[in-house]
């Protein structure tokens, strides 16, 4: 049986996902992905007439149950420190991260 997710496709996905995997993990994950895709392909067996639209939420949000849209009123959040205190590295109120790779080619 042909594998839909080849090692090359898999590498590309891993890159997009910003994941570093060891070889054992990679092998397991790729096999599972291909197995899941077999199940997913069952969807192709379903006749889908054009008039069948997508459903983003199962429950239809009729106007009567739709919450009112938020008014533009400021509610200050006084406790910003407890948010910042979760950051792994901060300096004078900034969150610190390693440098971003340079994009200049010249």
């Amino acid at each position: 049986m042909t594998e839909e997710i080849t090692p090359e496709t898999f590498e590309h996905l891993v890159h997009l996902a910003a994941l570093e995997l060891n070889a054992e993990e990679a092998q397991y994950l790729r096999r599972q992905l291909n197995n899941q895709l077999k199940a997913i392909h069952e969807l192709e067996a379903i006749p889908l007439p054009d008039e069948v639209a997508i459903t983003s939420h199962g429950v239809p949000y009729t106007p009567s149950i739709t919450p009112p849209i938020r008014n533009d009123e400021w509610l200050p959040n006084s406790d910003t420190k407890s948010i910042l205190s979760q950051a792994p590295d901060t300096d004078e109120g900034y969150i610190v991260v390693p440098d971003i790779p340079h994009t200049d080619l010249d």
């Binding site: 300096d91 900034y94 969150i95 610190v96 991260v97 440098d99 971003i100």
Partner: peptide, 8 residues
């Protein structure tokens, strides 16, 4: 900021 990035 000298080899690191500061986020606000």
């Amino acid at each position: 900021d000298y080899g690191r990035r500061l986020i606000d």
